[in-house]
Design a protein around this nucleic acid. Sequence first.
DNA 1: TTGAAAGCGCTAACAG
DNA 2: CTGTTAGCGCTTTCAA
Lengths: 359, 359
Amino acid sequence: MDQPSQHDPHAPPPGVAEPESRAGLRGAPEGLSIAGVAEQAGVSVATVSRVLNGHPNVRPATRDRVLAAVAASGYRVNELARNLRTAESRLLLTMVPDVGNPFYAEVIRGIDSVARQHGYFMLLCDTGADPGRERSYFDLLRRRRADGAICLDPATVQQALAEESNALPWVACCEFDSSVGVPYVGIDNYRAAGDAVRHLLARGHRRIALINSDDHYLYAQQRQRGYLDALLDAGITPDERWRLNVNSLDYEAGASAAASLMTHAKPPSAVFAVSDTLAIGVIAGLRSVGKRVPDDVAVAGFDDISLAAQIDPPLTTIAQPMRELGETAARLLLQRLANPTGDVPGVLLPHRLVVRKSA
Amino acid sequence: MDQPSQHDPHAPPPGVAEPESRAGLRGAPEGLSIAGVAEQAGVSVATVSRVLNGHPNVRPATRDRVLAAVAASGYRVNELARNLRTAESRLLLTMVPDVGNPFYAEVIRGIDSVARQHGYFMLLCDTGADPGRERSYFDLLRRRRADGAICLDPATVQQALAEESNALPWVACCEFDSSVGVPYVGIDNYRAAGDAVRHLLARGHRRIALINSDDHYLYAQQRQRGYLDALLDAGITPDERWRLNVNSLDYEAGASAAASLMTHAKPPSAVFAVSDTLAIGVIAGLRSVGKRVPDDVAVAGFDDISLAAQIDPPLTTIAQPMRELGETAARLLLQRLANPTGDVPGVLLPHRLVVRKSA
DNA sequence: TTGAAAGCGCTAACAG
DNA sequence: CTGTTAGCGCTTTCAA
């Protein structure tokens, strides 16, 4: 009972992370090393290391002496040294196109929570979906600053990554190309988009526009195919002028896309935007040109960010399990790290149509 | 011209970050060290190190030989080793209450951009404003995993930090207590809140509610004082029942606070929320109980996140220079790192009232 | 202009 | 159960 079995060396060592006396902290010399603690405790550095890492083979009395010295001196392990010695950084790199997007923010939280649970920290990098930045961040893996990476960037840039470094431990999240051969987690974008469009069709709409994101996202292509096929299946010939691609998921992008859509003589009666942020912008843009939602134009979004339920009118959208997406990605990566040669699966998580007032 | 003067060792070493032949990468052995490169180039490890770090005293011919070996082998420096040797992690810790809040997201971007410009990466930690998590993250500094920290958490927890470790290199951002003695950047919350309330007063409102965030944020106290004094100055006795504190900045918190406010017999005609997310929730909550904004109730927010201009009605709010806040915080920290003993100032950035339709 | 060698602080054999 | 010791891969004197 007083002897920890099976110790995780990256959990806070017993006695070390506990609140210690202020005096101890005050006295903490800057350059105190394990050798200093060993001396104070009258043992060898090896023993201190053992105690710090929770190894079982230490006599309780010795352990206490070491712990006392640690507490008294305010010693903290130098993880720079530990990292070199163990050849791991305990850092997980997360590359995301836009931290500011609420969708990504939530995915990130999922990643972070699982990472921390396993003694890893998250190095978050905002790539702006720029291949150059992506590459340079990815290089952190080779330089050993991160043990593994999670990539949410466009499949086009993921392919480049895969080509030159299939062996490096990384996984794809949300955006993925199942053919590149890295583990991935995401949803069935084709079906999800179809579900959204079929909902619009069921509401009686025939003129349905698509506001899509940048085409080098594979998910954009998949959602577009889902949209087209759903239309075709309903006997509707898609109107090319009603398919817009925007190069950012900002509210503004959605707003101006919507406004331009409404300049047509016989404009669409419904809009499907592939992101809630876009859809919220669409609603604002529609309002700015005097259109009411959903009376004049219905709007459906994608993601179900928390804001979707709060705007006027509340947004009908496809819910993605954002947190789970992130959590799963982190688990897949951890799995790959633990067993570099083992096969790691691709996993598809379920989506869900959430019907609110906007469509 | 062909000799880099004044080289920053953390910028990509010349020739190393450039795209190399695929063959080079393919052939890269996992455990290639500087010694291997030295051998291939027929020089000593010291020389390789000099080349890698752009030291001037290397004969061009030698340098080329080394660079060729580096390119051919696909060698990448092991930063774990470099970090131990140079005793720095080149990581900046950022502790933030909620990554998902658009306000913080934007501040974070500012931090990240300056950090990267100076060869640092950002370790982002979501504390949930929890003192325990804060403490444990902060410990990363002592363990040498980060060279410095930027804290956006409540002043109450910052005080604890300061008490036990005034000597550690950290700065406060957005939320700060000028008396704790660490460098900080923020805005004049007292004046900003006053500006918002005075705008409401000028619009003819007398019954003005305040929806405030958790009281252990100093900014919440400052904004409350600004609100109260502005009312008092206008000869109005503040009504205590109209001051609400919520413990989260989520949309939902704003929505339910607004709804409860409207249960009063003679409810407020205007609401000042100390965060845009709260204000957006307030508008949704008002709508849910049948109130129109701004006709029945005017709403003012705080921050000017990008969403503020998109909702219906567009939000009147106090703009904070979010990016600059982050950038400045990073610069202050870098300054402290460069000169640990030097005095680092507290800096106040300007805010701005943005009048839109909601008030 | 270059090389040899001494560590940075830690972990993990290997002995005892 | 404990101590001695050999590195991890790099940077940096110090000498040549």
